[in-house]
Design a protein around this nucleic acid. Structure first.
Lengths: 262, 262
DNA sequence: CTTGACCACTCGTCTATACGAGTTGGCGTT
DNA sequence: AACGCCAACTCGTATAGACGAGTGGTCAAG
């Protein structure tokens, strides 16, 4: 095994003023980038690296923790440290809320995932009346209470997205929107049936590191950021009729938008 | 000083099976979230935390490194560990490339930043002929060579964005586009003057942790992800006339898009 | 053949110690 | 008053050792 490390890794430069653990991280990173360790492959164990570089174990662990925080590798207790495989990504097209996509019975998430050959699931459904946070309240025109629809999306068993939709309660109470399953076309179809013809959506996107709670909910590996997307739906009267607050595992998504040049 | 820590932090639960360094991180995180440590405030020093929790210094450093990788704090050698202030963010509107914004003389970046009261700079200008990477080549319709325009954007002295525009060389050679300063309205105005009336843009957005190179170029703190945005400009004939590859410090941006509901 | 015990190997957590290097403020000299 | 030096504080790097806990294989007993 130690032969493996020797063949794929070089040695340290004692004259360099770059810290030893950084040099080790650099060498491993380069080896991964150049494909000398394939996706999913196991890196040399900590003790092999200790021997190869003649350093203490903490130094090796320090180096590995850099690569982990970069999202390059992940460690598995009792097994080893592995090059993180790139999960298949879901592309979110900017026309995914176009009216023509609302005709069929299944939700956009299910349809898209099926088309891509993945196994989709929706989870954790909760529909509740709540008092809105100041931010949500401002976006929805300060309703006293809102209907909150929470759900989690999974792809091939992996949670990839957690979303909460907020609607003014006066608009959603005692409608199919307040049901766990709002029916074909989702809540946007129901909103239009209720006379709130949709005009446009606004999406606001941030990226950041996840909170510990989000790490649990999305089972995120170290070094994976999240997209935080807030979408507001406006009807033709200019009223904000829904705000959807979504947190997505960033390594599972590519967002696509189409912008007019006019 | 140790009194400070005692007042704001609790004690450990030895019966918990949660690791000590995680418990310490939890306590500090909670204190920060609740505002007991304000933005920019200094946390208790490592040795103060060592004394307060009666653990070894490595355990404290381990806890702090968690908060660092979450982007909550950053350490400064010789000074201390500080709650990371939220930098002012730049909102990128989806209509920022609309034709009407191209009329005036200054670039979109300069105009927007001035309006927001920040001091904008552009940096690192380089214009070069290159052979395209396979990805860029595919997006531009496989030109043999491309013109690459590299630049870095700074806001109030802080680098926030690094961008490279690629244009098919046959389109850009011997035009103002190949000049370091392409003139009022930027290269999009020049493209339209050359008969390539712009029809629409496509943007593709990923978020990930930065490479060490990107950390240097954007002077990123630990725990800050980047947006990786690839924009393709299409003319009215359906030809891809430019690809812009941009890496942005995610803590400096909120992206905004407007989508039609039709 | 299956089961279970054991063992070797993996990473996870924690301690104790040492020295280096950047920052700050005070104190004495000039 | 201005300067320079030093001491005390900060975090950064590295070592050496210990024990715990998860995993997977071997091997012997059933």
């Amino acid at each position: 095994m130690s032969a493996l490390a020797s063949g794929l890794l070089g040695s340290l430069d004692p004259t360099s003023d770059r810290a030893v653990f950084r040099q080790i991280a650099d060498q491993l990173r380069e080896a991964i980038d150049k494909g000398r360790f394939a996706e999913g492959a196991k890196l040399p164990s900590e003790s092999e690296l200790v021997e190869h570089f003649s350093v203490s174990r903490m130094t090796v662990r320090n180096a590995l923790s850099i690569l982990q925080s970069e999202g390059l590798v992940s460690s598995e207790h009792g097994k080893g440290v592995f090059v993180r495989p790139r999960p298949p990504v879901r592309r979110l097209a900017s026309d995914r809320f176009a009216r023509r996509h609302r005709e069929q019975g299944k939700s956009a998430f299910i349809v898209e995932a099926d088309a891509a050959g993945s196994h989709p699931e929706v989870d954790n459904l909760e529909v509740k009346e709540e008092r809105p946070t100041p931010d949500i309240s401002a976006r929805l025109g300060a309703p006293r209470k809102v209907l909150a629809r929470r759900r989690r999306y999974l792809l091939d068993g992996r949670p990839v997205e957690f979303a909460v939709s907020y609607l003014p309660l006066d608009l959603a109470r005692d409608t199919p929107i307040a049901q766990p399953n709002p029916g074909p076309g989702g809540i946007y179809a129901r909103l239009e049936e209720l006379g709130h013809t949709l005009d446009h959506f606004e999406e606001e996107i941030k990226a950041r590191m996840p909170s510990p709670q989000e790490v649990r909910t999305l089972r995120l590996a170290a070094g994976v950021p999240v997209f935080h997307l807030i979408r507001t739906a406006f009807d033709t009267k200019g009223r904000a009729v829904e705000v959807c607050d979504t947190v997505m595992a960033a390594d599972a998504y590519v967002l696509n938008y189409q912008l007019p040049a006019t």
